[in-house]
Simulated assay, not measured.
Amino acid sequence: MDYEALNAEVLALSDSLRSADEATVAAEVQRLTALAAQIPDDFSRMRAMARVAKLPELISGPAVGQSEQYEKATHLVGTAMSADGTTEERIAVAERVASEIAELAAAAPPRESGTILRMNSSVARLIQELREQSQEG
């Protein structure tokens, strides 16, 4: 067993165990932990152990944000998506929102900052679509 093989198994299980009960998930974590312990390279073994420990989170998905920054970012995305006005005005709103979301992500608790920053992908797609519309018209 090596890290790559174990990681591939963790990824496969993260999909196949989506509706599994806690006992089944715990048994898989225990089994994979035993396999990870057999990896001869210290660094790879520690990476594998950390990866296996994340299996329950991979199955359930990321926790919903609880911070004030998460709540504000969620509302900002809604503001960008529902903005009225000309295409240029809507682009300006979306660009402002993207900037504010980046600031919120920087100020958020570490466990939520990546999730908040990823909210900008929806805003970036909106900006791109609006720019394409303005070029067509």
Rank of each mutant, 00 (worst) to 15 (best):
R111K: 14
G114Q: 11
D41V: 11
D84E: 13
V25T: 06
S19K: 10
E100F: 08
A94P: 01
A12S: 14
L126Q: 11
V93H: 04
L126C: 06
G65S: 02
L117G: 10
E100A: 07
M81E: 09
I39P: 14
L126V: 08
L130V: 10
R118G: 06
T87W: 03
E68F: 06
M119T: 01
V77W: 07
A102S: 12
Q69K: 02
V93I: 12
E112T: 01
P62Q: 09
L130E: 10
A63G: 05
P56H: 03
D42V: 14
N7I: 01
S122K: 14
I59C: 07
R96D: 15
L11W: 08
P109Q: 09
L104H: 08
A107E: 12
E71W: 00
A50H: 09
A20K: 05
Q66V: 04
P56L: 05
S67L: 03
E22G: 01
D42R: 14
D84T: 09
E9M: 09
E100M: 02
A37T: 08
A8M: 12
V10T: 01
E28Q: 14
S113W: 02
M46G: 02
A83N: 06
Q30I: 03
L6S: 03
E112D: 07
R31M: 13
Q66F: 00
S122M: 10
A48H: 10
A34M: 06
L17Q: 05
E28T: 00
V77P: 07
V29I: 12
P56F: 04
A105S: 06
D2V: 00
A37M: 04
V29R: 13
R125A: 15
Q30L: 11
L35C: 10
R51E: 15
A73N: 01
Q135I: 09
P109L: 02
V77T: 03
E132L: 15
R131D: 01
Q30S: 14
L126E: 06
A98F: 09
P109N: 04
A36R: 09
A92I: 05
E89G: 10
P110R: 06
I116C: 00
A5P: 02
E57C: 00
Y70E: 05
R125N: 15
S82T: 08
A20L: 02
I127D: 01
G78D: 09
